[in-house]
């Protein structure tokens, strides 16, 4: 599904990603862990098409398409979803019109007719139930005045609405209490199937108690320095990141 080959990226002349290689197949859950500043969020942003990062070398192939040539909106329509670490508040844009525009744009991309208002509202009700968010949130402006937990739940709700092939969840667990964490991870687990894949970017092992990864990668200093099964997460939790840093040295 996704193949990242020797990816280098910089911002303001500072190189952040220094040769990432990663392959993800349908049905898999990958966790990317690593200390602060290792490049985890940059990798997520580059995958989603954030233009402030300058890709200097490498390739990203997503279902046969060269992702780096696509603007962010086309990546989204093709099935990439980025769950933001800090979801943006957009006062004045209602959740309903936001999601309706987004869902119908994706349908247009796939040559499907747009949803009628009633079909759309029905879909929304289904997804609200699926991810267990408060339906009142969808009557408000996008993220405006939402608590940290509500914002993260709203990301999962949007993911449920857009049904991406590849979801990248950037530090979705940060700032969540245990109840919110359960709701968020339940949502992710329910949305998982054999045809889609998930990349979970996290600092802590805690989230991986709820969403069990098939692979764990450690990103350090712009490179993936270690890849293994889920047991790696426990090792990291126990020993911290220093042993990896030391191992590298």
């Amino acid at each position: 599904m996704l193949k990242i080959i020797d990816l280098h990226a910089k911002i303001n002349e500072k190189e952040i990603l220094k040769g990432i290689n990663l392959e993800i197949k349908a049905g898999e859950v990958h966790a990317i862990m690593g200390p602060n500043g290792s490049g985890k969020s940059t990798l997520a942003a580059v995958l989603a098409g954030r233009e402030i990062f300058n890709v200097t070398k490498g390739e990203i192939i997503f279902n046969g398409k060269n992702l780096l040539e696509m603007p962010p909106e086309d990546r989204a329509r093709a099935g990439i979803f980025l769950g933001f670490q800090y979801p943006i508040e957009i006062p004045g844009v209602s959740m309903v019109s936001f999601m309706k525009t987004a869902v119908n744009e994706a349908r247009k991309y796939k040559n499907l007719p747009p949803y009628s208002s009633s079909d759309f509202l029905k879909l929304m009700r289904e997804k609200i139930a699926l991810v267990e968010i408060d339906s009142k949130l969808t009557n408000r402006s996008v993220n405006e005045g939402f608590s940290g937990g509500e914002k993260k739940k709203n990301e999962i709700f949007q993911m449920a609405m857009l049904e991406p092939t590849l979801a990248i969840l950037d530090e979705t667990d940060s700032g969540l209490d245990i109840d919110a964490l359960k709701i968020v991870s339940n949502g992710v687990n329910k949305l998982k199937n054999k045809d889609n894949a998930t990349i979970i970017i996290t600092h802590y092992q805690r989230l991986l108690d709820y969403i069990v990864p098939d692979f764990v990668h450690v990103l350090y200093n712009g490179k993936i320095v270690k890849s293994s099964g889920k047991e790696l997460a426990f090792e990291l939790e126990e020993k911290g990141y220093d042993w990896i840093k030391n191992e590298k040295l």
Binding site: G49, P72, A76, F98, E105
Partner: peptide, 10 residues
Amino acid sequence: FYLRSRGISE
């Protein structure tokens, strides 16, 4: 970027 990342054109 947030809106575009959801598939809404620029």
